[in-house]
Amino acid sequence: MSSIGTGYDLSSTTYSPDGRVFQVEYASKAVDNSGTAVGIRVSDGVVFGVEKLLISPMLLHGSNRRVSTIGRHIGVASSGLVADARALINRGNQEANAWKSTYGEEISVKVLTERLASFAQVYTLYGGVRPFGCALLLGSWTEAAGPQLYMIQPSGEAYGYFGVAVGKGKAACKTDIEKLDLESMTCEEAVVEIAKMIHSVHDSDKDKEYELELSWVCRASGGRHQLVPAELRDSALAIATAESSDDDSSSDDD
């Protein structure tokens, strides 16, 4: 890496001569190295899928979740350093509570995204602090605003998306998402698509076992962020596994 040894990567207080802040870029690397996280915005809600890589076969199923909730109505899928993500999510919960006690209604995901992005950006300015090594996907569904999906990066940038993927398998997932007809798709269909994507980008040779976390916030869940019901999750996973083994056998035939 060109940055190494130049001294410009030791602190985010100093630009490199060509205008880069290396500490922020390294933080993005932490995100790129993590298990894939996908969020897609479809007609009736937002669906999240996370490939949670299991660091040990002794882990309790469902522990150390990478999907979480801010308030009750905003779903968050995180990638990168999960501990960093949790700090950001805690901040998000504070913002959501403060908003609700002031205005008596839930904070919108747009406002929350802006505030968290500003919060994350502050950590790219000073010595003695380290940028957040995580990216967050935030989504919500309300009757008035419909589905909304945003992503916050370690740099403090945040954009709204129709579909977004981060982590190891993001390139392949993005290609897959672009092929989908998001406008007409329902959340139930999206769950299957996400399961397929995550299953296909998971590199079972190189990586450890993974647990598929699926959650949604949609019309059916009443605008609340919830885990996808176990039945639907299992059937989606079964479809994904079946398809990939079909692919394997067909390639064998060739």
Binding site: G62, R65, V67, S68, T69, G71, R72, N93, N97, S101, S215, H225, Q226, L227
Partner: peptide, 15 residues
């Protein structure tokens, strides 16, 4: 009711 809601919001377990 707000006190109670704040208490319930602390419970963030999804499953």
């Amino acid at each position: 009711l707000e006190y109670v809601d704040e208490l319930l919001l602390e419970d963030t377990t999804l499953d």
